[in-house]
Amino acid sequence: MSERVVPPAARQRRRPTKQGVVLSAELIVDTALRLIEEHGADALSVRRLGRALGADPSSLYRYFRHTDDLMLAIADELIGRTLRVWRPTGDWRADLRELGLRMHAGALAHPRAAMLSAHRVTGRAHEIQAVEGIIGVLRRAGFPDPEAVRIYHAFVDQALAFGALDSAGTALPRAAREAEAEVWRDTYAHLPADTHPHIAATARHLVASMRSSSYPAALDLLLTAAQTRLDHLRAGTDG
């Protein structure tokens, strides 16, 4: 897509496309998400999207100015899908743990889209809702504003980074994933103790652990550190 702006009032198309559907921003985003998972970033072309929608490619400009505009909408939709099933309970640590795990699962459900969008800032409704919600959880827990922002930043970046990292692994062909898992079993598990004593001592744990994501453990470490920080603040110490 190119830089071509259509006034908002003129964006809605009411006539059905060739496939009998009425275009909407939501339909275009859903279709783009499906195509990205099938074809990667190459799916974000007006020609391919128009063909999938049974619509004239130029009609997409009624909803999105260019492909980056669409990419931001996709990123915001992924955030929205996570928020729709997250309900804070008042237990800040449990609430953030649940949200982090849902963010990670959402990335793995759309791995190629997650890799393309994890680093983007959308400034759109769902992202704004997420920022407001997470900072609200932290402020209500008793974190001072600077600490709330610091922990928010670390929490979100950690979730997005692990989502992108693990999505990249998920997007690999199955044979490649299996070959990498075998490296831990066939190489690391057989390194001699006289040359690699620490690997040899922990080999069985490495083989068992390295096949799965470390995000749950990393998330727990972050939340434990945040709890410790909050305890220090409540006690009037700074450590």
Rank of each mutant, 00 (worst) to 15 (best):
V131C: 05
A235F: 06
H126W: 08
A43E: 01
S212A: 15
V85N: 09
D30R: 12
P216Q: 06
A75Y: 02
P7L: 12
S212G: 13
D194A: 12
V149D: 13
P216A: 06
D194H: 15
L223T: 02
A217K: 14
T67I: 11
R65I: 09
G123Y: 08
D68C: 09
R177Q: 15
E180W: 11
R234W: 03
T122F: 05
P88C: 06
A55C: 11
R102C: 02
L35D: 00
E127G: 03
Y63K: 01
Y63T: 01
G100L: 00
R62T: 06
L206R: 13
H232N: 14
R234D: 08
M71Y: 00
R211C: 09
E147S: 14
R140L: 11
S213K: 08
R150D: 13
S117I: 02
H153W: 14
A225H: 11
D157E: 13
A9N: 11
P173N: 05
T122E: 04
Q158N: 09
D69S: 07
H119S: 12
L49S: 01
F143D: 03
D30N: 13
A189D: 09
D231C: 07
R62Y: 08
E147R: 10
P192I: 07
S58V: 13
L223I: 06
R211E: 13
V137Y: 01
L233Y: 06
P216E: 03
I74A: 05
D69P: 03
L99Y: 00
R11N: 02
A208K: 14
P197G: 04
A179R: 14
A200P: 04
P57H: 09
A25T: 04
A179H: 09
M210D: 08
A203I: 06
R14T: 13
F155L: 09
E147F: 10
A200W: 02
I199N: 06
R211F: 04
